[in-house]
Simulated assay, not measured.
Amino acid sequence: MKVAVMGAGAVGCYYGGMLARAGHDVVLIARPQHVEAIMREGLRLDTQHFDERVRVSASIEASAVKGAELVLFCVKSTDTDSAAQALAPYLDGDALVLSLQNGVENAARLRELLPQEAAAAVVYVASEMAGPGHIRHHGRGELVIEPSTMSEAVARAFVDAGVPTEISDNVRGALWAKLVLNCAYNALSAITQMPYGKLVQGEGVTRAMRDIVDECLAVATADGVTIPGDVDAAVRRIAETMPNQFSSTAQDLARGKKSEIDHLNGLIVRRGEALGVPTPANRLLHVLVRLIENKAG
Rank of each mutant, 00 (worst) to 15 (best):
A4N: 09
M6H: 02
M6K: 01
M6Q: 03
A10Q: 02
A10H: 02
Y14L: 11
G16A: 09
R21F: 03
A22R: 13
G23H: 14
G23K: 14
V26N: 05
P32G: 05
V35Y: 11
V35A: 05
I38D: 00
M39C: 05
R40K: 12
R44T: 11
T47M: 05
F50T: 12
F50W: 09
E52C: 10
R53F: 04
R55C: 03
R55H: 11
V56I: 15
A58G: 01
A58H: 01
S63R: 15
V65G: 10
A68Y: 05
T78K: 14
D79E: 11
T80A: 14
D81A: 11
S82N: 08
Q85G: 03
P89N: 14
G93L: 06
D94E: 12
L96M: 15
V97F: 04
L100R: 05
Q101L: 05
V104W: 01
R109C: 01
L110W: 00
E112D: 08
L114D: 00
P115E: 11
P115M: 12
Q116A: 13
A119D: 04
A126C: 10
S127N: 06
M129E: 02
M129A: 01
M129W: 05
M129L: 08
G131T: 10
G131H: 12
I135Y: 06
E142Y: 10
L143V: 11
V144S: 10
V144A: 06
A153S: 14
G162C: 02
I167P: 02
D169E: 15
N170R: 13
R172H: 11
W176D: 04
W176V: 13
L179F: 03
N182A: 13
C183P: 01
A184P: 03
A184S: 15
L188A: 04
L188N: 01
T192G: 01
Q193N: 13
K198H: 14
L199N: 05
Q201H: 15
E203L: 09
E203Q: 15
G204W: 02
R207Y: 01
R207P: 04
I212L: 06
V213H: 00
C216F: 10
A233Y: 15
A233Q: 09
Q245L: 05
Q245H: 15
S247Y: 04
S248I: 00
R255G: 05
D262C: 07
D262P: 01
N265Y: 04
R270H: 10
E273A: 14
T279W: 10
A281S: 06
L284K: 10
H286G: 00
L288H: 08
E293M: 07
A296Y: 07
A296C: 07
